[in-house]
Nucleic acid binder design. Structure first.
Lengths: 200, 200
DNA sequence: GTCTATAGACCGATAGAC
DNA sequence: GTCTATCGGTCTATAGAC
């Protein structure tokens, strides 16, 4: 870029916020209180602004939700689009590991995504993209079953949902900066998903 | 019991609803739309009643939530209180299996419980009971690690959260009456939790 | 780019008739 | 045990001054 700051154009006048910063605070608050239970006034208060100042940055509360969900979905879709080669078992492990890392790196956004129930057009569109992602992962698992690397005594879609249920449940308790770092977490998840908790 | 019906006293006058029926419909609606996003007017409409008629059955919207959460928590706590003997590995498998069955048998109530975020005194009390349950399960897992039946290369609390995250994720997709019955589901979950998805 | 003020709808809950 | 009517409060969003 040119002069002054990194990527955003230099700020003038009052400090203020840019869209990205407002979005980050909004998502944090939505996750604390729930999207529906969070009013625009709540958000304005946390930012130290008035409601009207916020509406200068965004058209609606729902637009904030849409941008946040896109951030999460884009990350997850990137995990499937990225690699490609190697056998199904290795691809599956890479997707599992990648999903954990995206979840950790975009934790607030993915957390919000996983709580969406389809209560509006924006939410239903996000659920549709999630379903498409799940479908692609399921195909990968059934492929791995055919090649003999994933057990076939449990239905493919069922084992996919179980393992990704485990991954997604990370948003309920994992917090970056704690005792366990992102790579250790990804390793533990892949270990338990592939080989279970029992000793052999 | 004495004469007439099974447990509730015989209905007189207009058909109406009893507390249990109203609660069941309320929980269904809370799960569809979210607790906060569901108004008492929404619930009245689904029941074909007015708001005032509903307030004859209940003191507040929050009381409905409290009763529903108690239904779920009571079931889960019963799983830990029930058996007792055998070695840690068998006890752990029994708790896993029991949790799946309670989740299936009280699906709407457990679903609602798992979405609670602690936004009121009622919700915080429910979260506290959940934490106590999780703590007892974690102790069981670390005990099984000591006896050598559960892998020790992953932290005990972490493997507990991962496996119960998998169990809890069932509320996101499992629906009774589908292709997979409750016992088959419990078997599949215990299989994947203990031995993972990979073939050996 | 922020502010004050407010429109217009909906919220949970209550009063009181039948 | 249901109804109509309404209270006081909060919601999202907008108008318009500075």
């Amino acid at each position: 870029m040119s002069a002054s700051a990194e990527s955003a154009p230099a700020r003038r006048g009052r400090p203020g916020y840019d869209r990205e910063q407002v979005l980050a605070v909004a998502v944090e608050l939505f996750n604390e209180q729930g999207y529906d239970a969070t009013s625009v006034a709540d958000l304005a208060q946390r930012l130290g602004l008035t409601k009207s100042a916020l509406y200068h940055h965004f058209d609606s509360k729902e637009q904030l939700l849409a941008l946040a969900l896109d951030e999460a979905l884009g990350g997850l879709e990137g995990v499937l689009d990225a690699p490609a080669d190697a056998d199904p078992a290795e691809r599956l492990a890479a997707v599992l590991r990648g999903a954990v890392l995206v979840l950790v790196d975009r934790l607030p956004y993915v957390t919000l995504l996983l709580r969406v129930r389809g209560n509006s057009d924006v939410e239903r569109a996000a659920l549709e993209r999630r379903r498409a992602f799940d479908h692609r992962v399921t195909m990968l698992v059934t492929e791995a079953q055919s090649s003999g690397s994933v057990r076939s005594d449990v239905d493919g879609p069922v084992v996919t949902r179980l393992v990704f249920g485990m991954v997604n449940s990370l948003v309920e308790w994992y917090r970056p900066g704690g005792a366990i770092d992102r790579d250790r977490l990804a390793h533990d998840v892949v270990t338990v998903a592939l080989d279970g908790m029992r000793t052999r």
